[in-house]
Amino acid sequence: MSTISIESVTKRFPNGFEALKGISTDIAAGSFTVILGPSGAGKSTLLRLLNGLETPSDGSVTIDGETLEKATLRKMRSSVAMVFQQFNLVERLSVVTNVLTGRLAHRSWVGSVFYLFRNEDMDIAQETLARVGLTDKAWSRVDKLSGGQQQRVGIARALAQRPKVILADEPVASLDPVASEEIMGLLREICDRDGITVVVNLHQVDLARRFADRIIGMNSGKIVFDGSPKHMTQSVMRTIYQREDIEDDNSLDLALAYA
């Protein structure tokens, strides 16, 4: 059973740049998928399309049997959570308020004008904070936290939403190796324990190999590899990371040898 279904999606930006050139794939419910590819391959655009932060120029995105369009956007977003590279938290609010913003999709605007939530929302927020190990930081302001802690707040916010899908756009790109390991472990555990579908964009090939069920390789807006981590051979990596402007392949090989 597939949760996410992407059908011949293309994305052209107003400046004429074609970020996605006809992508079609299905992502199975409860799976852990990593998307790899060089910068500018269209990984972020693809992920943002799945959350409706971008709309496709052609083709369609279907999540859980419902096609993503303007009318269904808010409802869809309530079941698709997103974790960002730069965390995208509201730094001036407390940790727990940021987590509570994950509940906004389920609440009307009336209470929001007065910053009011329900008690059960607070219970959910506390529970997800405990899940990411930040119970003691609940009332701190977000800008007082380290990068790794902020990303865990981001994950708690995503979980508070009770989503079916979590999209993570380079969630560890701003973090040190130890924090990266923690965050990836957390996402994997969420996938395994809660059965939430996780899709992660990554630049770290070794993390992709260790955590993913399935790896999708992208280059220049197309899918160039799709398979399990054990099929990621050296030649596959060269296909994923090749660039037109690299004349000799030495630098590519050298870079990938340690990846």
Binding site: N88, A105, S112, G154, Q161
Partner: peptide
């Protein structure tokens, strides 16, 4: 960025 972060979780206008 925070605006996008909150919007992505289904918050209304």
């Amino acid at each position: 960025k925070p605006v996008e972060g909150v919007r992505a979780h289904g918050a209304g206008w």
